[in-house]
Amino acid sequence: MAVSENQLKKMLTKYKYRDLTVQETVSVIVQYKDLKPVMDSYVFNDGTSRELMSLTGTIPVSYKGNTYNIPICLWLLDTYPFNPPICFVKPTSTMTIKTGKHVDANGKIYLPYLHEWKHPLSDLIGLIQVMIVVFGEEPPVFSRPTISAPYPSYQA
């Protein structure tokens, strides 16, 4: 069930630019139905944590002729949209992160779009579109090769 605008307003009461954040979140979840808003505590590098909203789920990425649902998590700071979201790829237990220019070993995503973030030129929809293009060239996660089960041992 989709989260309503009123529910989002309640979730985002502590956000400084709540209406802008609600408006953008709505357009993301309408367009990318596999992303949903979730409140959770985000732990910063200095150990402090804050209750923030993330958009968590998958985005469709086309790679070598197939479409994959790449799991991501976009954290919105309470100063959003005047600061860029903090973005991660979230590998499942069957996936492994492919570190590279755009992703580090923790899954944190680095993109010029985030680095040069400037409201209102930058927004979540634009960011997701960039991710879809960049990840389509260089996927941030791969499936782990399946380990074949050992031969069953026979009991005499």
Partner: peptide, 14 residues
Amino acid sequence: LNGGTIPTAPPSYT
């Protein structure tokens, strides 16, 4: 699963 899509990734290139 409540409308969620199962995450998928390309097969390992190795």
